[in-house]
Each structure stands twice: as structure tokens, then as C-alpha cells.
Amino acid sequence: MMIWFTADTHFGHKKILEYTERPFSSVEEMDEALIENWNSKVSADDEVYHIGDVGLCSPQKLQKILQRLNGKIYLIRGNHDKAAEACKDRFEWIKDYYELTMPDSEAYQGKQLIVLLHYAMRVWQASHYGTCHLYGHSHGQLPDDSTSLSFDVGVDCHNYAPINYNDVKRILKTKNWTPPQLRGD
């Protein structure tokens, strides 16, 4: 079983094509590409933390799309999730905020705390102790802060596909973050 993260799929949302300059000729092409990219990575037993804005379409259309996606999906609610909430049976749960603890032998005491919220934050629970924060909402338009253990996991930033925990770790290792106690502030 693998853990995956994504955000801002915006299934069924025609205007997202122009808002974010997605390289698809139609919303149908976008939806099919997102489904194919998702299922090429995520297996049936995997867990996916979708950090908001699943789709902007009718609940009936979104339900059909959700049924085609592999994995157990956990939804951290975004600002465009009314249709997703109407499909609540497809999600393991729906929350506004979540703190995920990942077993990780490379992390402090063998655990990595990951704060999941649709919106980017400058500070979060235990951020000064190495907790990381994954978000969406900004569609890659928010400049990355190389000194912060946070980044956008939205599809617009990751080849229109979910990323796994190993990808998260790889990206975090590129950050120039130093614990406050070692900075000499």
C-alpha cells in the first residue's frame, strides 16, 4: 500500500482550462487525462489524500468519475467541494483539516507529521520542529518558499497526477529549511 497526495483536480470544470492554462482541448479530455494519470499510479489498495477542489460539475457526473478512480480517497475540503460532499460515500472521510502521521525511519523519532489543509499557511502545528504542510488552492501560482517545509501538491504542479510520499520527501529535501534552534536567531 502506498500513500498519495493531490489537490485541485477540478473534474468537470471547463473554466479551469483557461484559468490555469491546462493543456487540454476540452474538459472531457482533461477529465480523461486526470483519470488515466491517477489510475496509472494509484492501485486499488492505496490511500489518496485529496486536498480539496475535486470537481465543479453535477454530483451525478462527479460520482461517475470518482467511481473510476483507484484507491481509498480521503478528502480535505476545499472551497469548491459541494459536489464532492454530495458524493460523501465515495470518500473514507471528509474533513476541513488533517494531521497525518507517517511512519518514516528517516524522520525524528521515526514519524513525520504532515499538516493537510487546502490553503497555504506560513506557520502550522509544530512547523518549527520539522512538520511539513501540503496544500492546494493556488494552482502553482504561489511562489515556493525554499525555506519552508510546505508546497503545493495540486495537479497543476505535478504533471496532472498524484504524488506519493517518496515524492514528498524528495521535494522536501530540496528545501533550505533549518530548525530555529540551529539558526542562531
Rank of each mutant, 00 (worst) to 15 (best):
G12A: 08
K14N: 08
K15W: 06
I16V: 03
I16W: 00
Y19C: 02
Y19V: 00
Y19G: 00
T20R: 05
E21Y: 01
E21I: 06
R22A: 04
F24T: 06
S25R: 07
S26D: 06
V27R: 01
E29H: 00
D31T: 04
I35T: 02
N37E: 03
W38R: 12
K41A: 12
V42G: 12
S43C: 09
A44W: 06
D45G: 12
V48Y: 04
D53A: 05
G55P: 11
S58A: 07
P59E: 00
L62D: 08
Q63E: 09
I65V: 15
N70M: 15
N70D: 14
N70Q: 13
K72W: 14
N79H: 02
R90W: 05
I94C: 03
K95P: 00
Y97I: 02
L100H: 02
D104L: 03
A107I: 05
Q109I: 13
Q109K: 15
Q109P: 08
V115M: 05
L116T: 04
H118I: 04
H118N: 10
V123Q: 15
W124Q: 14
H128T: 11
Y129E: 15
T131G: 00
C132E: 13
H133Y: 07
H139M: 12
G140A: 10
D144T: 08
D145F: 08
D145Q: 11
